[in-house]
Amino acid sequence: MDKEFVKVACSNCNLRELCMPVGLNAEELSRVDELVATRRSIKRGMSLFHNGEKFTSLYAIRTGFFKTSVTAEDGRDQVTGFQMAGEIIGLDGIVNDRHTCDAIALEDAEVCVMPFDRIEEISREVNALQHHVHKIMSREIVRDHGVMLLLGSMRAEERLAAFLLNLVQRLQARGFSRSELVLRMTREEIGSYLGMKLETVSRTFSKFADDGLVEVKQRHIQIRDAEALKRIVNPQVCR
C-alpha cells in the first residue's frame, strides 16, 4: 500500500525550478504552496493511478521513477512513457476526467499530490502558474509527437540512441552525470516503449558496446561517445 504524508511547501523544495514556475514573488509563492495537498509514498511495482480511474489530481514526482502504460487489444502492456523526479504525471486525465493509462512505480517513489480544482483556482490568480501548466501540457504533446516520429521512421539503432540521449539529458537537468545512468526500466519495457523486440534491444545494446559507444554492466550504462550516438540519430547529409 502507498502512504500519505503531510503537505510540503513547494517554496522549500529543491526540485521547485523543475516542476514549478520561476520568478514568483513572495505572495505568489505562498499561493502556489497551497497547491500540494499531501505527499504520497508509492512502493516499487505499485500503481499511482489506473486506466479508467477518476481524475482528480496532477502529481509532481519528488523522488523515484515511473512508467505509464496501456493494455493493447491482445492483452499485452504497451509502455507509453517514463517519468522521473521533477516531472508532472497525470495529464492524461484532464480530457475526460478519467485516466487513460496506468502509472506504475519502477522504484520506491514519492509524489506531491496537486488537486486539479485547486490548480485551476490558483491559476486564475497567479498567471505564471497557468502559463506553466500550459507549457507542461505542450511539452507532453511535443514528446508524444517525437515518439511517433521515432517509431514511424527510425531504425533500431536510431531509436535506442535517441532514447539514451534523451534519458541522459533529462537526468543531467536534475544534477546527475552526463555520461552515466542506471536504467530503472527493464530491456523488455524499453522495447515496448520503442516498438522493438527484446532480442533487438539486447542486440543493439551489444552493438553499441562493441563499437565503443557505451559500456554496459547490467542496468548500469556509461556513455563513452555521446557524439557518435548523436550522429546515429542525426546523420550528416552528404553534399
Rank of each mutant, 00 (worst) to 15 (best):
A26C: 02
E28G: 00
S30R: 05
S30F: 06
S30K: 04
S30E: 03
R31A: 08
V32Q: 00
V32I: 10
D33M: 06
L35K: 11
V36S: 08
V36D: 02
A37S: 15
R39Y: 11
R39G: 15
S41M: 15
I42L: 08
I42W: 03
K43C: 12
R44N: 11
G45C: 07
M46R: 13
M46K: 14
S47E: 07
S47W: 04
S47G: 07
L48G: 00
L48F: 00
F49Q: 05
N51C: 05
G52N: 03
G52M: 01
E53F: 01
E53K: 07
E53R: 02
K54D: 07
F55N: 03
F55Y: 00
T56P: 08
S57R: 03
L58S: 01
Y59V: 07
I61K: 05
F65P: 08
F65N: 04
K67E: 00
K67F: 03
K67Y: 02
S69V: 01
V70H: 08
T71Y: 04
A72K: 09
A72W: 05
E73S: 14
D74G: 10
R76H: 10
D77N: 12
V79K: 05
V79Q: 05
T80P: 09
T80A: 07
T80E: 04
G81Q: 04
Q83R: 13
Q83C: 12
Q83G: 11
M84T: 14
A85Y: 01
A85F: 03
E87L: 06
I88E: 06
I88N: 02
I88R: 07
I89T: 07
I89W: 02
I89M: 05
G90Q: 06
L91E: 12
G93V: 01
G93S: 05
N96V: 04
D97N: 07
D97R: 05
T100S: 01
T100C: 00
A103W: 00
A103P: 07
I104F: 02
I104Q: 04
A105N: 06
A105W: 00
E107K: 10
D108K: 11
A109D: 09
V111L: 03
V111P: 14
C112V: 14
C112E: 12
M114C: 13
P115T: 12
F116H: 10
D117I: 12
R118Q: 15
E120L: 13
E121M: 14
E121A: 14
I122P: 09
I122H: 02
I122A: 09
S123C: 08
R124P: 13
E125T: 15
E125F: 12
V126Y: 00
V126K: 03
N127L: 13
N127A: 14
A128K: 10
L129T: 07
Q130A: 14
Q130R: 13
V133K: 04
V133Y: 06
H134A: 15
I136R: 12
I136M: 10
M137E: 12
S138F: 14
S138C: 14
R139V: 10
R139M: 11
I141S: 10
I141K: 13
I141R: 13
V142N: 12
V142F: 11
H145R: 15
G146E: 07
G146N: 11
G146V: 08
G146I: 06
M148Y: 10
L149H: 09
L150D: 09
L150A: 09
L150F: 00
L151N: 13
G152F: 02
G152Q: 03
S153Y: 00
M154E: 02
M154K: 01
R155Y: 03
